[in-house]
């Protein structure tokens, strides 16, 4: 699990004269599950596309270990791009031929009850996502890049999706990199949380560490001095203050109730903070 499967150095990419990725540094190890979070339009999908080879960087390098070659990299974009005129059977056959896949596990598709003759164009988003996932997993990938697709899926398909990912991780030690907004069902899955802002990662921690580093205080009136408030929310009497970086001596110094917050809220705070910084810039 310790060898890096992907190493990104100094990655820069501009899109329509806007710098989207700015000397981004990042590495991923075998079997690691990292999640990328950030506000809309910050460049998460762009980064994923860059790692998948769909977009090419202006500067910097993406170093892949030999096991993360293009044939062993799976990419599911939020556009769920496939050849829409093909039927499911044709798409599977095409994918198998191109990637030289001997056996194709169609249990996932079977659970949806879709017919081989149906055209991709007529599938729902969820069915397409599962199809895409089946195709990509049949490659036995060692690197999986999944853009934000979970929110498109109904709860049952979402479950199937996540279970399939877990299966891949146990079977192949697949490294998984996902982009997520919603964390409701997957908050225990990522081992690393990366928050993207201004074209690079501003946070790169384990969820446990993050939970230790950010606490919430709800009180009336302003916050006492000396507390590093990263982000505050609320218009009324009671405001939510997110303290980051938090340390235990702050608990001793101030007689406040520092609440533990779960990962989704931490992420939300980071995103909110990002918006605030953008407003002030």
């Amino acid at each position: 699990m310790s060898q890096p499967i992907l190493e990104v150095h100094d990655l820069s990419l501009s899109f329509s004269r806007k710098k989207v990725l700015d000397r981004l540094e990042f590495s991923l190890r075998r079997g690691e599950w990292a999640v990328i979070a950030g506000r809309n339009g910050v460049g998460k999908s762009t980064l994923l596309r860059c790692l998948a080879g769909v977009l090419l960087p202006d500067a910097g390098a993406v170093a892949r270990s030999p096991e993360a070659c293009p044939a062993k990299t799976g990419f599911i974009s939020d556009r769920l791009s496939l050849f829409e005129d093909l039927t499911i059977g044709q798409a599977v056959a095409f994918h198998r031929r191109v990637f030289a896949i001997d056996d194709f596990d169609d249990r996932l598709l079977g659970r949806l009850g879709v017919k081989q003759k149906e055209r991709i164009r007529s599938l729902s988003a969820g069915e397409r996502a599962i199809l895409h996932l089946s195709l990509v997993l049949s490659q036995k990938p060692s690197l999986l890049l999944v853009d934000e697709v979970l929110h498109m899926l109904d709860p049952y398909i979402r479950d199937l999706f996540i279970e399939a990912l877990i299966e891949a991780m146990t079977a192949q030690e697949t490294a998984v990199l996902t982009v997520n907004h919603t964390f409701s069902e997957i908050e225990r899955l990522p081992e690393r949380v990366l928050v993207m802002e201004e074209g690079r990662f501003v946070v790169d921690e384990t969820p446990e560490a993050l939970r230790g580093m950010m606490k919430k205080v709800v009180c009336r009136g302003p916050l006492p001095n000396g507390l590093p408030c990263f982000f505050s929310k609320g218009e009324g009497e009671y405001k939510e203050y997110f303290i980051y970086p938090f340390s235990e001596d702050l608990r001793a110094a101030h007689a406040l109730d520092f609440q533990d917050i779960a990962l989704p809220e931490i992420i939300k705070a980071f995103i909110g903070g990002g918006y605030e910084q953008k407003r002030m810039a």
């Binding site: 596309r49 998948a52 080879g53 769909v54 070659c69 293009p70 044939a71 990299t73 990419f75 974009s77 556009r79 791009s81 496939l82 050849f83 829409e84 005129d85 093909l86 191109v98 990637f99």
Partner: peptide, 16 residues
């Protein structure tokens, strides 16, 4: 043109 029409350009570029 066909790939673009079928919205498969991204998929095309991920092929090995």
């Amino acid at each position: 043109a066909m790939d673009s029409k079928q919205k498969g350009m991204e998929y095309l570029l991920t092929l090995p």
